[in-house]
Nucleic acid binder design. Structure first.
Length: 671
RNA sequence: UGGCCUAUGGUGUAACUGGUAACACGUCUGUUUUUGGUGCAGAAGAGUCUAGGUUCGAAACCUAGUGGGCCAACCA
């Protein structure tokens, strides 16, 4: 089958390389997290790109932990990252570490010094920073730039042996202090960190910087395409410089593939923060319960929230790959969750905000077994038994004493069906001494039992509501989540701390009643609580203390009020809109109809407030179809004694160039 | 001496590499429905940031401008 999906630009690059001679067996990718935090939804994009490519071309992906900075990294993050990637269903080829390359990196650094491509600088970081210059002004050379090779070698050796303190000496590549790309201004490649490393222990006191490690590790691992996010674009110059310098100075037999770095736009999600530092702070300041709090955008948070690997993968493929900055609406993620969960999740009834429903004409001691369909979406739906008697719980929201227009649920005198059960009609309510609702009383239609086949059972009522039987229901804790932030882009303004936008109500805990069969649910089991949304059993849930997390609500449709659209209202319906509509049609109409439209527009434009006509003019004039109409509207302005500003006049005359004669006439008259 | 990246409906991504814009989400309509869900059918919404240029023809190529982003950690 031919590839039908459009290629993204990275696939095109790979395709081009392949067609210009790169054997497909040489294709190799890598996913290189720094083990200093948990993976989040942003990382799943990189995961999806790399593993997607790997899948498409049957190429390997290395999982490489970028562990060049022992002061920030930790083994527990390595473990968590591996767990999350496995959960997503990706399997990597080799597990590697940047630290695996430390020896080779050191040897290459030596070569660099010997070939005058690197030197040890004895200045402190301030001095070095100042000499770098600014983006708009060149830097100046370090006084140590031309230090003799032997001296640099000796000092580098002392750094390596732990004979210098942190910050005293650094090794710098000698490139160009006036390079327009700041990263090329003699970047630091080694610094002293007097810390033991989680893998190499105390072997090293010098650790390579990102730029000195990343490309070289790609090269050593023979990665063909090193894909990263856009902010690394300026690093590409350095990446290439290091590789070509090494290739020209060092013996690199056997390393045939020179990797390419290419960059894509990272994923941003509305109402979400993605910065590891900020996620850290959410955890540390206890705004959330941990890295796997269901409100966190981490993979482990999404997992606990109830997202499936499938839904996340679908999301990533819908998001696409390009190079422009983007903010994806969370509604897309939610759509992917619903789409996946709708097909697979068992339906259940749970009442989150219970109120007692008494069926007054149902025999007090009677009890019967009803049947409930596990999942109507499945091809051969199973059913399960359900106890029904005279006392049930329903949602408070499903009853209204004073139903608004369009309300379809229960109210006094109205009928609804109890899901899989009978049709009931509310008769009255019971209140306590302070006037609070304690129970809703209703009568049921004994012949209306669902599935009984009787004529009454086929009766249509407004809607069907869910319920649980008071006697058999289990109590459970249900955790409902709202967005963690109240702003679509909580960290867009550097002057406003993102904590400002934390939603205080992001977690709501409800004491709910659920169907008894849920007592056997295990963590991560997924359900659709009928009419409410998708829920998943929490990690801490047990038969004695059931806990469910809400993944996402069902898609909610606005309540449609039967519209009282009188002819009068229709007439008052925005002349502006009417004009726009007419304008669109105009070009397609026959000439006699056009003249009718002209008249309509003219009379409509008389009804528009002058203030509204101006914005209509400025937006609509750009659109071909509406130009004509706007010009007609102008005549209305004229007839009301309003004259155009010079700007507007200018604008109109330009717009006139390719208009028809009658418009020109009309407008010239105006101008 | 600034460099680099980028600009297409509300959002995101396409447009077979030059033949006047498509897909998904969202929105709205209708319909089915024992979930105000799902499904089905349909609609509205951009003329591709601006101005020049190349071309028979530009969203695409060129130039300039404008807007947005990244770069001045011994972070990655």
């Amino acid at each position: 089958m031919l590839e039908t999906k459009p290629q993204n630009f990275i696939e095109q690059i790979v395709e081009t390389d392949l067609s210009s001679g790169l054997p497909s067996s040489a294709l190799r990718f890598r996913f290189p997290p720094e083990p200093n935090g948990f993976l989040h939804i942003g990382h799943t994009k990189a995961l999806g790109i790399n593993f997607g490519l790997a899948d498409k071309y049957s190429a390997p992906v290395n999982l490489r932990f970028d562990d060049t900075n022992p002061s920030k990294e930790d083994q527990r993050f390595v473990d968590a990252i591996k767990k999350d990637i496995k959960w997503m269903g990706y399997s990597w080829s080799k597990e590697t570490y940047s630290s695996d390359c430390f020896d080779q990196l050191y040897l290459w650094a030596l070569k660099l010094i010997k070939h005058q491509h690197a030197y040890v600088d004895s200045q402190n970081s301030n001095a070095i920073a100042t000499q770098k210059g600014t983006p708009t002004s060149a830097g100046t050379n370090s006084p140590y730039r031309n230090r003799p090779i032997e001296e640099s070698l000796a000092l580098f050796e002392s750094m390596k042996n732990g004979e210098t303190k942190e910050g005293e000496l650094v090794l710098r590549a000698k490139i160009d202090m006036s390079h327009p790309n700041m990263l090329m201004r003699d970047p630091i490649i080694y610094r002293v960190i007097n810390k033991s490393h989680q893998r190499t222990q105390n072997k090293w006191r010098i650790y390579p910087m990102y730029d000195w490690a990343h490309g070289q590790c790609d090269y050593i691992e023979q990665v063909s395409h090193s894909l990263c996010s856009l902010e690394f674009r300026p690093h590409r110059d350095l990446y290439d410089w290091f590789l070509s310098t090494i290739k020209s100075q060092c013996d690199v037999a056997g390393l045939r593939i020179v990797p390419k770095q290419r960059e894509f736009a990272r994923l941003n999600l509305s109402y979400t923060i993605m910065s590891k530092r900020k996620l850290f702070s959410l955890v540390e300041q206890n705004y959330v319960s941990g890295w796997d709090d269901p409100r966190m955008p981490t993979i482990s948070g999404l997992r606990r929230r109830g997202y499936t690997p499938n839904s996340i993968k679908n999301f990533i493929s819908k998001v696409g790959v390009a190079k422009r900055d983007n903010i994806i609406d969370v509604s897309l993620l939610e759509f992917c969750a619903r789409e996946d969960l709708n097909k697979s999740s068992t339906r259940a009834m749970a009442v989150l905000n219970p109120v007692l429903l008494k069926i007054v004409n149902y025999p007090k001691n009677k009890e019967e077994e009803l049947f409930f369909v596990d999942n109507p979406e499945s091809e051969e739906p199973n059913t399960r038994p359900l106890t029904f008697n005279s006392e049930l719980y329903i949602e408070k929201e499903d009853f209204s004493a004073d139903p608004p227009l369009g309300f379809k649920r229960l109210s006094i005198g109205s009928e609804v069906r109890l899901k899989s059960g009978y049709i009931v009609k509310a008769t009255h309510v019971e209140l306590d001494s302070s006037g609070n609702l304690t129970a809703i009383c209703c009568e049921y239609d004994p012949k209306s039992l669902s599935g009984s086949g009787s004529l009454e059972s086929q009766r249509k009522v407004n809607t069907t509501i869910h319920w649980v039987c008071k006697k058999t229901a289990l109590s459970a804790e249900v955790r409902e989540y709202e967005r963690l932030f109240t702003s679509p882009s909580p960290d867009s303004d550097p002057n406003i701390p993102f904590e400002t936008y934390i939603n205080k109500n992001s977690l709501q805990i409800r004491k709910a009643f659920v169907e008894p069969f849920l007592s056997s649910s295990k963590p991560a089991d997924k359900f659709q609580f009928q009419r409410l949304g998708y829920f998943n059993t929490d990690d801490n849930s047990s038969a004695s203390q059931l806990i469910f997390n809400k993944t996402v609500s069902l898609r909610e449709q606005k309540i449609k009020k039967p519209r009282p659209q009188t002819a009068k209202e229709m007439r008052e319906l925005k002349p502006i809109e009417a004009i726009k509509k007419l304008g669109k049609k105009y070009a397609k109409l026959s000439s006699d109809k056009q003249s009718v439209v002209k008249q309509q527009v003219l009379s409509l434009s008389q009804k528009i407030a002058l203030n509204d006509l101006a914005p209509l003019f400025s937006t609509a004039i750009k659109k071909r179809g509406t130009r004509a109409v706007v010009l007609i509207s102008l005549s209305a302005l004229k007839s009301r004694g309003v004259s155009l500003s010079d700007d507007a006049r200018d604008f109109v005359s330009k717009a006139l160039v390719d208009q028809e004669q009658w418009i020109k006439d009309l407008s010239n008259n105006l101008l």
